[in-house]
Amino acid sequence: MRSSDKNKFMESDVALYGMFVSVALVMSYIESLIPINPPVPGIKLGLANIVIIWVLYSMGIKPAAIISVLRVLLAGFLFGNLYSIIFSMAGAVFSLAVMFFLKKVRFFTVIGVSIAGGVAHNLAQTVVAMIVLENVWMASYFPALLVSGVVSGIAIGILGGILYRKIKILQPDKKQ
């Protein structure tokens, strides 16, 4: 089943990616069930980021990007609307990029990377909100979002780190 062709997307990859997308989707679903009424729109736990961090650390940037984008699209169609897809996509892509670079820098642990990811997510969403709604004053929500990004980033980083350390998954690199 495992071919020697490095670039080929293998059957085992399909299963693995599918599993992670499902777990990320379940996280999104759980999050939509938790009845928190934030005083500022945009504050959320970011549970799906646990999975993204887990994948980023154990499998690398490419699988993390694929799973992240798929998760945003699926969660958007299932639980959201067009606006929530635009917002989530901007947040997910930018936060993944920031997390990838901070991981490369090596100063930070999973928690630091996760904090930066959470804040980057909120920053991207604020900027997109300013553009889409043509309202510069959306920026006034940003300080509260910054705090929420740091707090949830710490929690998500701890959880993602535990998953990464405790559950060893198939490394795509080792197959080659």
Binding site: F107, F108, I111, G112, I115, V119, L146, G149, G153, G157
Partner: peptide, 12 residues
Amino acid sequence: HKFDFLLGAVLL
């Protein structure tokens, strides 16, 4: 974790 703390503090 000292850089993580630093990052968090700067952002807050």
